[in-house]
């Protein structure tokens, strides 16, 4: 009787650990175990089937000798740079304007942010139709009287990647606006009062005082957008399918094509590992500083 009670008490004391342990195990297996497996496969001879014979950096050599991979990397840089720059610009502009005591702010904010609720596949489908050469924007401009206007970016290998930027900015710039608006709301009224007493005009107040105070918001918004950009897969598939040819391939679509369509597991695993390394380089220092902040 006594010992059963003691056992019960010990169980009770250990219960929190016991409850968390499945989460811990799931994370170890499905996140860390899987990452290790993929990383290991990238160092093996794996082709159509996994092959566990160690093969050094051969798959990475093959990856970096693939022209399609260079297209994917180049697109990632173009897309990420433009996507972040334009989303930030729109986000800051709209947040500052909305912060001017606009009475119908709630309604406007809802309109700016609703694309975030949509699937990238839905966004891609709509923009594919809007940008349709022949029936879309091109036709619209023709009907306005500009007969020689031509807009074929969606099917033009040199410009198709910019259509992906257009659709992505449409979907995500409202998100940047929301993050900055939250940041602006956290700026103390006293700061604005002090700036006004010093005679600073609105432009100086924002560019010289308020926006520099929002540096942490800048940092987290850039990181969130960069993270979205590296993972972008759905939108490319829905809008261009990676085409024409593989002109709009990104690392995420490259990996999918090599893993599930061309069955080159080794190269696919190598490209996935490269993606992970990129994300780690961005996210881990950020997470570390954020977690330290909450610990304080």
């Amino acid at each position: 009787m006594q010992s059963a009670n003691r056992f019960g008490a010990r169980l009770e004391r250990r219960l929190p650990q016991l409850v968390v342990s499945p989460l811990f195990a799931v994370s170890l297996f499905f996140v860390y175990g899987f990452i290790l497996w993929t990383a290991y496969i990238s160092f093996t001879k794996s082709g159509v089937m996994p092959n566990y014979t160690f093969d050094g950096l051969a798959q990475y050599q093959r990856l970096w000798a693939t022209p399609r991979w260079y297209v994917a990397i180049r697109n990632l840089f173009i897309f990420t740079a433009l996507f972040i720059a334009i989303s930030l610009a729109i986000g800051i502009l709209l947040a500052v304007l909305l912060d001017q005591r606009v009475r119908i702010e709630g309604v406007i904010r809802t309109i700016y942010l609703y694309p975030m609720a949509l699937s990238f596949i839905v966004t891609g489908t709509v923009w594919k139709w809007i940008l349709n050469p022949g029936l879309g924007v091109e036709r619209l401009v023709h009907q306005m009287g500009f007969e020689s206007f031509s807009f074929d970016w969606l099917v033009n290998p040199d410009y198709a990647i910019y259509t992906v930027v257009m659709a992505a900015v449409w979907q995500s710039s409202g998100y940047a606006m929301a993050l900055f608006l939250a940041g602006l709301r956290s700026v103390d009224d006293e700061v604005l009062k002090a700036a006004a007493i010093d005679g600073a005009g609105p432009w100086r107040t924002y560019t010289g005082i308020v926006l520099p105070m929002l540096r942490p918001v800048f940092l987290s918004t850039v990181i969130i957008l960069a993270h979205l950009a590296i993972k972008s897969f759905d939108l490319v598939i829905a809008l261009t399918g990676g085409g024409p040819g593989y002109a709009t391939d990104m690392p995420a679509t490259f990996m999918y094509a090599f893993a599930f369509q061309r069955s080159e597991l080794g190269v696919a695993a190598a490209s996935a590992t490269m993606m992970l390394m990129t994300v780690i380089a961005i996210i881990v220092p950020y997470l570390y500083s954020e977690l330290r902040k909450t610990a304080e």
Binding site: V20, L28, V31, T38, F233, A252, A272, L276, L291
Partner: peptide
């Protein structure tokens, strides 16, 4: 806190890295 940090990392990985396994 360590367990939480370990688990949290899983929210940010590119899922391509777990597709094959």
């Amino acid at each position: 806190d360590w367990i939480f940090a370990l688990v949290l990392f899983g929210a940010f990985i590119p899922f391509q890295v777990v597709l094959l396994p």
